[in-house]
Computed example of a mutant assay.
Amino acid sequence: MSTHGWRTSSFSSNGASCVEVLEADGATYLRDTKEHGEGAVLHLDGPAWSAFLDEVARDAPSANGAVDVTTRGDDGARAVQEHSSGAVLHFRDDEWVAFRRGVLAGEFGALGD
């Protein structure tokens, strides 16, 4: 997997604490910028990524088959857990909201692709 091309939502305030996305090798990868490239990297194939984008846009329960998104506590923080590896990413509410705004703006692919 290439390490170049990671990007964040344009709605992320500083680019240092957010959901980071890489499209490579026919798949999409997610990581947390707070981990400085040392943390977990989650993998979604094309159909799972499209379903995930739709779920994020609709703020709907996870049914994409690759990752589960759960709300942690009352602060709106999210945990994203990959089914195959069990790896988990943790995002604060502001990080997730910025990512979702990017999804709604089409920054990570058109919904329904």
Rank of each mutant, 00 (worst) to 15 (best):
74 D>Q: 12
107 E>S: 00
49 W>E: 07
100 R>D: 02
113 D>C: 03
98 A>H: 07
47 P>V: 01
52 F>I: 05
53 L>E: 06
38 E>T: 12
10 S>L: 06
72 R>T: 12
51 A>D: 07
96 W>H: 07
76 G>A: 14
34 K>F: 01
24 A>Y: 08
43 H>M: 02
9 S>I: 07
41 V>K: 11
79 A>P: 00
90 H>G: 14
58 R>T: 02
39 G>T: 07
48 A>I: 03
80 V>F: 02
44 L>C: 08
11 F>A: 09
18 C>W: 04
96 W>M: 01
42 L>C: 01
4 H>Y: 04
50 S>W: 04
65 G>N: 11
77 A>I: 06
9 S>H: 13
75 D>E: 11
54 D>E: 13
88 V>Q: 12
20 E>N: 09
9 S>G: 04
30 L>H: 15
76 G>E: 13
56 V>Y: 08
54 D>Q: 11
34 K>G: 00
8 T>E: 06
23 E>H: 14
99 F>T: 14
98 A>V: 03
38 E>P: 00
17 S>G: 03
2 S>H: 11
28 T>V: 12
48 A>G: 04
15 G>R: 13
81 Q>E: 13
106 G>T: 05
95 E>A: 10
23 E>G: 11
73 G>V: 02
16 A>R: 12
105 A>H: 12
13 S>Y: 11
63 A>S: 15
32 D>M: 08
56 V>A: 01
6 W>I: 03
43 H>G: 08
104 L>W: 05
105 A>C: 05
23 E>P: 06
29 Y>H: 13
37 G>R: 03
13 S>W: 14
107 E>D: 02
44 L>K: 04
9 S>A: 06
69 V>G: 05
68 D>L: 02
100 R>H: 09
92 R>E: 15
72 R>P: 01
107 E>A: 00
